[in-house]
Amino acid sequence: MTPFKLHRAKSLSEATKAFKAAEEGRFLAGGQTLIPVLKQRLAAPSDLVSLGGVAGLAGITASAEKITIGAMTRHADVAANADVRRLLPALAEMAGGIGDPHVRNRGTMGGSVANNDPAADYPAAVLGLGGTVVTDSRRISADDYFQGLFTTALEDGEIITALEFPVPERAGYVKMPHPASRYCLVGVMVTKGAAGVRVAVTGAGQGGVFRVPAMEAALAKSFTAAAIVGIKVAADDLMTDIHAGAEYRAHLIGVLARRAIAKALA
């Protein structure tokens, strides 16, 4: 790693101040993406601002309508949380399938959502559940938040403090993990709740996570796997890489969406 100055912020204001004073600052959450990136010298920030010591950023609160997850909450803690498992088991299951056990013990939900990797799991949860990204300065709805590959509505220096998820009536998530990395070749989250039906796809889009309006409309009429048989997502805007072509990813979206519906109904 190239040298950098590390700031161990104790509060959000300290973190913001250190970030603003830096020539090229980066926030450090769980580090499970950023540290490998630094080790590969794919980034060389002048300053890292660690959020690990900021009080109040980790933890989960739940009511019958809403689950709020602090940005620094580790994947393993989301997976194991009794309220999440009871109210939103699809999210607990998703969290328990990210990376590997060691990654889940360090990686954080806020870090993943801020990074917005096109093959990450959590973007599908935030968009698929119609969640809200809460930052140190405002609230951003999921539909406004995701803006492309590794691109979000976050301003420079803005810090995610929590993610809010409305508790749905039904939710299911299924992914085809890359066999080595466990990132999503394709992952599909299907939910039904107060805001209607939402279908969010990660791992496949050239522009990152996206919704599938045709499936949502069909499922609003009949929330069954049969309702979306024959609805295809065009391969044009999907990714092709050495692991899977766009046509294959398009096919997987249909298969995994039907499986996610079956899970949501189970």
């Binding site: 590390l6 450090l28 580090g31 540290i35 060691h102 013990n105 360090r106």
Partner: peptide, 9 residues
């Protein structure tokens, strides 16, 4: 908790 010590400062 198990962690990768190469991926933590």
């Amino acid at each position: 908790r198990s962690v990768k010590s190469c991926t933590m400062l």
